[in-house]
Design a protein around this nucleic acid. Structure first.
Lengths: 145, 145
DNA sequence: GAAAGTTGAAATAAACATTGTTACAACTTT
DNA sequence: AAAGTTGTAACAATGTTTATTTCAACTTTC
């Protein structure tokens, strides 16, 4: 099982907004062209990023804008914004362990802390890189091309 | 998106084999009863654990056995055994970034290292706990009940 | 204020993944 | 030989992801 590509698409989208936002209107159509992701899905992702306070968009007037400095947006913020995991976390637990079995009625308790720790390790790593780094690396590669 | 419940089911299964293996034959039917997971799926999981060298099973003779000490089996070994992620890793990348766009043709390169680091953080955390700990915690709770 | 272009959103479809189910051959033990 | 078990294939049911179609609401520009 994999984490939805909306996450990498969202990072791609935000990078485009930062890189191209100065010189042109970055519309969902343009972003669809750059990412190869359907324009409706792009608007969908932009909507989630907007709800999370990461971008600003308005009906009618084309062009998404960042709602805060790229140095203050981490990969984790994006990950959360596009809802890569649901309420019950990254790991899905098998749903019907048998309460009549000593193992069955305790396995959840025993595992939960460890699963949360593993999830936290992933999330902390995502928190450690900001969009500013992604954009800087991207611009550097572009200049060297 | 979530990691398949085959992972938590597999840990449950291995715990049962260790806890009940001394006193009875731990068959796929018994394991199905304890986990609430279909017996065919249980056999499926046992097959993957067998391929990974974690358990031993044989046609006809019921009863799965551990193939190595529980102190040498980490949650990561189980995670890998049941193929929680495919070849391309935990994160799915959007498939068609546009090579004609400077961002599109470089975003993969820029993100890959960070995605791998996040995945590694998760996996390292899973490597840090062994089945011996899971079994010990489970037995302790059972005794206290 | 009309035209053109854009966003937001709903409804639906297509593709894929996960889990459960049925069925049965091959095997082991008794 | 009988009973119980594993391994495996085929299929069904369900859920998730991504794409597509459609259109109302909005903004900008002429």
């Amino acid at each position: 099982m994999q984490i939805t590509s909306k996450f990498t698409a969202a990072v791609h989208i935000l990078t485009c907004i930062e890189v191209f936002g100065g010189e042109m209107r970055v519309t969902s159509d343009f972003l669809s062209g750059s990412t190869g992701v359907n324009a409706v899905i792009v608007r969908n992702v932009l909507g989630q990023l907007r709800e999370a306070g990461i971008v600003e968009t308005r009906q009618g007037s084309g062009g998404a804008h960042l709602a805060k400095p790229i140095s203050e947006i981490t990969l984790y913020d994006v990950y959360r914004a596009v809802e890569c995991t649901n309420d019950t976390g990254l790991f899905r637990f098998h749903e019907n362990p048998n309460a009549k079995c000593p193992v069955g009625r305790n396995i959840h308790k025993v595992m939960d802390g460890r699963l949360e720790a593993a999830q936290a390790a992933l999330e902390n790593e995502l928190k450690s890189t900001t969009l500013a780094e992604i954009v800087a690396d991207t611009k550097k590669i572009i200049e060297e091309e």
